[in-house]
Nucleic acid binder design. Sequence first.
DNA 1: GGGTTTCGGGAGG
DNA 2: TTCCACCTCCCGAAACCC
Length: 670
Amino acid sequence: MEKNETLSGDKPRPWQSYHTVYTNAKAGMEGVDKEKVQRIVYETSKGSKYFENEEKKEALLRQKIENMRAQRAKLSAADLSHYQTVADRRILELEATRDLSRIWLHADMDAFYAAVETLSNPSLKGKPMAVGGMSMISTANYEARRFGVRAAMPGFIARKLCPELIFVPTDFKKYTHYSELTRKVFEKYDPNFMAASLDEAYLDITEVCKERSMSGGEIAEELRKCVNEETGLTCSAGVAPNRLLAKVCSDINKPNGQFVLTNDRMAVMTFIFSLPIRKIGGIGKVTEHILRDAFGISTCEEMLQKGGLLCALFSHSTADTPQVSSRKSISSERTFSATADETLLYQKLADIAEMLYTDMKKEGLYGRTLTLKLKTASFEVRSRAVTLEKYICSSEDILKHASKLLKAELPISLRLMGLRMSHFNEDKIGSPSDPTQKTLNNFIVSADLSRKNLDDSKSLGSDINDLKLMNNMEGSFSIEIHELQCYGIRDPLDSNNLQDLNVHHCTSTDSVEAKKIREPSSNKIADKVITKDMEEEVSQWKESGLSLPGQLEGESPDRLNQVIMDNEAVFSSEQKDGLVWVDDYKCSLCGIEMPPYFEEERQEHSDFHLAERLQKEESSFDTRTSTLRQRSVKKDRISSQSKRKRHKPSPKKGRHLSIDMFFAKSNQNF
DNA sequence: GGGTTTCGGGAGG
DNA sequence: TTCCACCTCCCGAAACCC
């Protein structure tokens, strides 16, 4: 940070160089005295450890900008000419694929959390209010925004800006409820709409516009009115040929307004040219700073003009696009008063492991990469990860591995710890619970692939669709579990047996293959498989010393078949798992509360308990039959500073920048 | 040499 | 009085593994 910058004759105003996101243009903040906000933020922050860390980061950024300037200076005329050709060619390619055929609508609720709180407590109306606490604010209403108070601002700074600010604690249950109401409206216009968060959604309204012979603007008007009638809340909308443009448009007439960008090349180009780069999704505070200070780029027009330069110094990468995808990771983190007390740190780690476990349990997830996130007392953020051989889920396993990671960092004074689980067993279609285990059924692969393609084929992405995807995964998951139940003693590496068998043990209701087994025509195959494998099964069960489920010993193939069928029935029944919803609300096994209308979630939850039980059974079996397994078990690879020596990072090409952004591609950003 | 993992960091809500 | 969250996703490069 440059200190004591002066304007001719003025007093020093050091806050001018303290770069925060709080003075950035945001809806409802047009009339804000930016300099005053900047000064108060600076004065409130100055001298804190947070501030010192920000200074360090700022210094690194300045160094990076200097490096880029140096690289830029090194480029010869020939280089520049070459990269300009590359840029021009790319522009031509993109122009050829420009798609102006779709109409996208981005709906964005106005100050959502704050509006919901005002709805349930009308006395807040007209008063400056923020949802959150003294440490951090989630949302501020428009009255508070006039003082410069905004989301992601610490509460104590907000209070300095607006002493009469009212704080309301967050209540996600409430927001989720209202979010559901809005989504019911969105669904009417695009059943495959894409929810970007609780308060934002993307809708492809091309079809509904055609069917009803209405313009995008008319649909937007109607949709906003409908949302207001259903919820009592207002929202803003943007209509454009692609999602990212629609998002930019929805911000223009906020709150309770809309903006339409017509599907016309000239209109799009004119609109984009004047657009500040910061409006582009993916360009944040840092990238904006780099582009402005290293290249003198502030608008999209300048960006296009300097395309050659950007091609030379930035790698080819498109900006982030909202995509339909399954969950990639799940995490939990907590901030606390900085401490170096190891007992306390381990206790906090145990709490976080428990929280992560609870969240994973809710979604029935098993993961094998565990990342420990640390924030030191001086705000430095570090992460340490380990990838395990087995997928894990239990809080004990999470804590065991997290503790190893933490141990390697001690002694240390921390103010935050977090745990993230990734690399789920659904990551790769058909990947089994043990990555070395080649057991998953061919049919799942094909079934899931076709369903996944279906989901991916359009720009889906709503939570509803995520849920669908999740359910699909859940399908394959329960199949695996079931397989463990019936074939727990089989050598997991013996894929020959399992490929046949898995087909007959799927409980997925929408699977053609699963139904087949119940048809007389396929009894033959089933009998054959069961006869052959049950013999092995029974003898191995005997060897293992475990009691035979269903007293299979000596039973005929028909009887064995029946036992399997019965088992399937058991798996689908909550009651038989021992799970009951107390007061029709609370899980009798773990106490989690879930209202009756969360039908799918409840089913998943029930499945989870079943999975948990089966895994316990399997692992207890594992310990007894470990000699049967001829598997080489690699030692967990735990990374630590001591093991990993890193080179000093070399100046790398920037990213998140692409001239693709200038093209209306409905499958991309523009 | 190519694939995978780790780690730091940017971004958005 | 209080003193800068939490969660998720993505990318790039180095390190590591085979």
